[in-house]
Structures are given as C-alpha cells and as structure tokens.
Amino acid sequence: MTFKCWCGVAGGKPLRTVDVARESGYSVQQVRDLERLGVLPPAARSANGYRCYTPAHVRALRAYRGLAGAVGPVEARQLLARVRTQTLAEAAAAISEVHVRLARERDEALRAREALRAIQAGAGAGGSEREGDAMTITELAGALGVRPSTLRFWEQEGLIAPERVTSLRARRYGLAAVRAARVVAALRSSGYGIPAVREIMGSLDRLDGLEETGRVLGRRLDRIAARTVALLRAGADLAAVCGS
C-alpha cells in the first residue's frame, strides 16, 4: 500500500499508526497508548495532524514486547524511556542488569530445588551438619537477596525456625533452616502469599507436599526460562533503541 509522504521522512515514506500496528503486532489503540506512556518517542505530525512514524518506532515496540515479557510492562516502560536518554554505555549496562537479574533468579530457584531435594532425602539431619554450614542473619539475607527484616518476618510467620546463640540471642541459621529459607524465598518470588507459603512449608513432611513444591519450583524455572528467551528475542531491537 502506498500513501503520501506527509512528513517528508528522508530515505523512505513515513508509517501511519495502522502500519506500525501491523508491523509490531499491537492494535492501533495500543500504539497510541504506548506512545502516550513514553514507550515510543513522540511521533511527528503532518500538516493535517496525522501521526508520522518511522521504522525506529516499530523497533521500539518490538523491544518493548520482549522487555515486558522479561520484567513486566511497568518496568519495561520505565526502562525504555530511560535508555533513550542515556549514553550507549549506560543503556547497555541497564539491559545487561536485566540479564544478570534473570540469571540470579534462575540460580536461586535451582538452589531452592536442591534444598528441597535435600529435605526430601533427609540430608543434613542429626549430626551431619557442620559448623560451617550455619549462617548469621546477615549472611543468609545476603545469600537470598532479601533484607534481614524479611527473615525476621518469616520467622514471626512460622516459615523458618533459626537457632539462637550467645547471650544476645543472635540468630544462627543451621543447614535445615537455610534450606527452608531458600524454598520460602523461591515461593515468595513465585508470587505465593504468606498463608500459601505457610501451608506449603507445613506440607514438606508429606510426600504429596514435597512433590507439589517440586512442581511449583519447576514452574518457576520454566517461567524464568520463558522470560529469558523473550529478552533474547528482543536483543536486536533493544540494541537499536539503545544506539538510536
């Protein structure tokens, strides 16, 4: 389909809203909404008020689709709006941080699954725990990427049960508590509320509870993989946005 070059775009004809929608897979209204929300740079306007887009707008929408699949729509909008104003080095670093975060989430989920298998096998019980396996609250919070106050809250809610040592009653997390905390962290990251996590953790002494928790962690790993693939698919378009 041909149409008049309203905006005088050098090297090619401008794209109408319907053209951008067709190329990006969004509806016409979604294209307008995403421009209003800052996902797209403002489109030029022709003399009669029509929007005039370029292939850069299509790339930005494709980049947004992949980024939204990786981090969610709200953060994707904020990130794209930010990288358009940053230097190439800054924008590349911002996108790299998303890759790093997904890799960290995957590692945490894998550790939680290993912890669950150890719980299932009864490993770490009795005298098999070594002194070096224990963690302070600061060490465990750092390992899980949460605040110490979060661990205290989980304790109050009956999700984990640390030991207490010294006259100051400083918390000491033995191997069993560390494993439980890893499972709790993975469940919370999967979107489970405190009551649901409490129920799941209370079921770990049953075979069906262990199996269901294993399925939960498996689904989390699958979702992280899907988010990673979405980010990889958006790679070329994100690079174009960062380099524009």
Rank of each mutant, 00 (worst) to 15 (best):
T2C: 08
F3D: 11
F3M: 12
F3K: 13
K4N: 01
A10P: 10
A10Q: 11
G11M: 04
G12L: 08
L15Y: 08
L15I: 00
R16G: 07
V20S: 02
R22E: 11
Q29Y: 00
D33G: 06
L34P: 02
L34Y: 15
L34F: 06
G38Q: 06
V39I: 00
P41Q: 11
P41V: 09
P41Y: 02
P42H: 08
A43M: 05
A44W: 00
G49I: 01
Y53N: 06
T54C: 00
P55R: 01
H57Q: 10
V58W: 11
L61A: 07
Y64N: 07
Y64G: 03
G66I: 00
L67S: 06
V71F: 04
A76C: 11
L79H: 08
L80I: 14
A81L: 04
V83N: 07
R84F: 05
T85F: 08
T87V: 02
A89N: 06
A89P: 05
E90P: 07
A92L: 14
A94L: 10
V98Q: 13
V98A: 10
H99Q: 12
A103W: 06
R104A: 13
E105T: 03
R106H: 09
D107F: 09
D107W: 07
A109K: 01
R111H: 12
A112M: 13
A112Q: 08
E114C: 06
L116N: 08
R117D: 13
R117H: 10
A118G: 14
A121H: 11
A121P: 01
A121S: 13
A121F: 01
A123N: 14
G124D: 06
A125N: 12
A125Y: 14
S128Y: 08
E129M: 14
E129P: 00
E129V: 14
G132N: 12
D133P: 04
A134P: 00
T136E: 08
T136S: 15
T136Q: 07
I137E: 13
L140S: 07
L144R: 04
R147A: 11
R147F: 07
R147V: 03
R147C: 05
S149F: 05
T150I: 02
R152T: 09
F153A: 15
W154K: 05
E155L: 10
Q156N: 11
G158T: 08
A161T: 06
R164D: 05
R164Y: 13
R172V: 10
L175W: 12
R182D: 00
R182S: 05
V184P: 11
A186F: 02
S189D: 15
G191L: 03
I194M: 03
I194D: 09
A196F: 01
V197K: 04
R198L: 09
E199A: 12
I200K: 12
I200V: 14
I200S: 05
G202W: 02
L204V: 04
D205I: 03
R206I: 01
R206V: 08
T213L: 03
V216R: 15
V216P: 05
R220G: 01
I224P: 00
A225L: 14
T228Q: 14
V229Y: 13
V229R: 15
L231F: 14
L232I: 14
R233L: 09
A236R: 15
A236F: 01
D237C: 13
D237T: 13
L238V: 03
A240P: 05
V241S: 10
C242Q: 10
G243P: 07
G243L: 02
S244E: 15
